[in-house]
């Protein structure tokens, strides 16, 4: 897929923002007043900033409000609804914590559940795609969730939990890459089933329908990014998992945690870029491409 910047930024930052909100909803850390203000400001900046960024890839963003209507069938719509509910609930929670010094415990729990559900809905937008076998697997939502909660743990200074969750994210990522590399081949779809001609012999794309480019090829058969995939995977793994874990093992307080977070952010952005760039859509089969 063509990795749209707005979507990469959206999935990474809103994942972190909702992960942070999930921790804050549990009262971890139990902050009030100015302390709470900065935590919530960061959480809302990440989550709302991500959501705004996501509208930049739309053809007609002025109609984005319509996207909350189809929650019965659409994961994208569910994500929108859950995000708004989370922000509303946690907004009230934050209001009381910052200005009245009160912790509305039960409301916080509701906010935590909603925040995690939002991240799950985001991941399901991709995991539901049968057309992209690399994504169509439980490890995608698992990875999104663990990265979100782990990032939140990092931001709230839960060092041990962050280390454990990042390690789990690393394992999930490894298995996701390994499985993903053969997912298209094992999906049962090939140029033979795509054309229905496979039983007659070996099918080869002889002549494409058009000599130029088109929306499908630009959007779904994006090959440029895959050239350096191996190196980028190394960088993503180092940044997202390994370096932050090593940094967190150094007892250095907030400065080290902040550095670990920035490295993690850069690594996760790289990982997410790869997530989209490496996605192989079955429509490529019609063009004899991947």
């Amino acid at each position: 897929m063509h990795p749209a910047h707005s979507i990469i930024i959206f999935t990474v930052t809103s994942g972190l923002g909702f992960g942070l909100l999930a921790w804050l909803g549990l009262g971890q850390p139990a902050v009030t007043g100015w302390g709470a203000f900065w935590y919530f400001a960061l959480a809302f900046a990440l989550s709302v900033g991500g959501l705004i960024s996501s509208t930049f890839h739309l053809g007609n963003p002025q109609r984005a409000w319509r996207a909350v209507s189809q929650w019965r069938s659409s994961w994208l719509s569910r994500e929108g609804v859950l995000a708004i509910l989370t922000l509303a609930v946690m907004g009230i929670y934050a209001l009381f914590a910052v200005f009245f010094g009160q912790t509305l415990t039960v409301l916080g729990w509701v906010g935590t559940i909603l925040a995690l559900a939002t991240v799950f809905a985001t991941s399901m937008i991709y995991a539901q795609m049968k057309t992209v076998p690399r994504w169509n697997h439980w490890s995608v939502p698992a990875l999104f969730m663990v990265l979100s909660i782990g990032g939140g743990a990092l931001l709230t200074g839960h060092v041990l939990v962050a280390v454990i969750l990042l390690a789990i994210a690393g394992l999930l990522q490894m298995s996701n890459w390994t499985r993903g590399d053969t997912a298209l081949a094992q999906s049962g779809s090939d140029i033979g089933t795509a054309t229905g001609l496979g039983l007659r012999g070996a099918v080869r794309a002889f002549e494409p329908p058009h000599t130029g480019n088109n929306y499908l090829l630009k959007e779904m058969v994006h090959k440029v990014g895959r050239k350096h995939a191996r190196k980028l995977r190394m960088l993503a793994f180092l940044g997202m998992v390994l370096v932050p874990i090593l940094l967190l093992l150094i007892p250095g307080g907030w400065v080290v945690i902040a550095i670990a977070f920035l490295v993690h952010l850069a690594g996760t952005l790289t990982q997410r870029w790869l997530f989209f760039a490496e996605a192989e859509h079955v429509v490529g089969l019609y063009y004899g491409k991947r």
Binding site: M1, H57, L58, G59, N60, P61, R63, A64, R66, A67, L76, I125, Q128, M129, K130, T131, V132, S189, A194, Y215, L216, E219, M220, H281, V282, V283, Y286
Partner: peptide, 14 residues
């Protein structure tokens, strides 16, 4: 239509 492109992604046939 907001032009999010998700339907095109869900279609295996392009």
């Amino acid at each position: 239509c907001i032009g999010c492109g998700l339907c095109a992604w869900a279609c295996p046939y392009g």
